[in-house]
Design a binder for these strands. Structure first.
Lengths: 219, 219
DNA sequence: CGGTACGTTGATATCTCTCAAAGCAGGTGG
DNA sequence: CCACCTGCTTTGAGAGATATCAACGTACCG
């Protein structure tokens, strides 16, 4: 799974011979921005966040990494990003340089990674549009809809339950907002009857998806 | 040059056999969002912008493409981005699907493209940080400093001249601001003595780079 | 039964956008 | 050569949105 999806059998075994399993508890950091960029990894299970930060400490989540995804900055000597587990996660970790050398001989891996990187770039661009041109309500509503497609569980009554894997602070850092505006937008959605909050806000029930769509993409 | 940088000789000739030269005048569009995604290209000379837009027509420039860069969304059936020439440009255009097939047999091309895509992704992430967490002044000052590294020409008196390749509108779309705030920030920088404007704002002279740096990265 | 971390709510400040008008440069045709 | 037109830029005033600061509420955990 993951990088392995369509890769060649030999290439895979070459890779797996340099990989090491590693468990990361929620909150633990895999990689610090500024450190030597010594490793990369494939996510077996869990969710990680990738954050960039300004000189004065403001943070922006520039990517979320789910099971099957690859994480790491290949070909960079020092890392500019911090990678942190949002929930308990299992990784397959590789020494970066060795990974690059193996990949150079394993074109199926290279091809796979190119595909993924292109997909990530598309994601990143979609998010630039959000960060540059969308209002708070659109960002929050859009975020919920994205989550639905990734992590949703349908309940018996037809509404959709999301176990939000991130805190309000993470949502804010992801969306380029503050905690307070995220919270306010969520209660707004609650008042509109589009969602219901539970478990102190960590669990969101989407009761009216149709109501959410136009808020995420107004005309 | 371009994709060709370190590519294998055979791979290159395979590529060039499917490529076609094409000139694009400033303002002309190479690719429209929503159209069938039939082509990709290598920029020989010039500068292009890549824009994404919301359902209701707001635009965000998600990338600038310079000489030597590759442009196009591989492996996507329909394009979600519009690509437009900012200045008269020369391209080497390929049919997308054929390009993909040739690339599959040409690992040196694949490797090259992976490198570039990874670099674009890093760019994109840096820009997410800007769009999500930086103020107008930081964005504008930072933009100027970025341009310096790309297109600057040193003048005899030690100040730096930029021929800004984009209109205020483009700068605004790039930075996630409006034309007016970009303009205001520029005059602010002018008042601070960091820059001088000429040619109706199209040419910017950086008279005090040291003054610009802390504005782009305060603290 | 606190305590602590997280979430919500409120009041206010700040920033950027919006709308409107005026200034400037370049191009065209008289 | 000048006048005018057009598109871009600048400037201004005011509205609107989000951030900030502060307090309060709530869940989870020892």
């Amino acid at each position: 799974m993951g990088l392995c999806g369509a890769a060649d059998r030999d290439d895979l075994s070459a890779l797996s011979s340099i990989g090491r399993r590693r468990a990361l508890a929620a909150g633990q950091v895999l990689t610090w921005a500024g450190d030597d960029n010594v490793l990369c990894a494939n996510v077996v299970s869990g969710i990680l966040k990738v954050t960039a930060s300004t000189a004065n400490g403001r943070e922006q989540i520039v990517g979320l990494v789910f099971a099957g995804d690859f994480v790491g900055q290949l070909f960079e000597e020092t890392s500019s990003l911090t990678v942190t587990a949002l929930v308990d996660s299992d990784l397959c970790v590789y020494p970066r340089e060795r990974f690059e050398r193996v990949m150079a001989e394993a074109s199926s891996i290279e091809r796979m990674l190119l595909r993924r990187t292109l997909a990530s770039l598309n994601d990143a661009r979609e998010r630039m549009l959000t960060l540059g041109k969308r209002g708070a309500q659109e960002r929050v509503a859009g975020f919920l809809l994205d989550l639905v497609d990734r992590t949703a569980v349908r309940t018996v009554d037809g509404s959709i339950s999301i176990d939000v894997p991130v805190s309000r602070g993470d949502m804010a850092d992801f969306l380029g907002l503050t905690i307070e505006t995220v919270s306010r937008q969520l209660t707004r959605l609650k008042v509109l009857g589009a969602i219901t909050l539970a478990r102190g806000g960590r669990s969101i029930l989407i009761t009216d998806r149709a109501a959410l769509e136009p808020l995420a993409n107004p005309e």
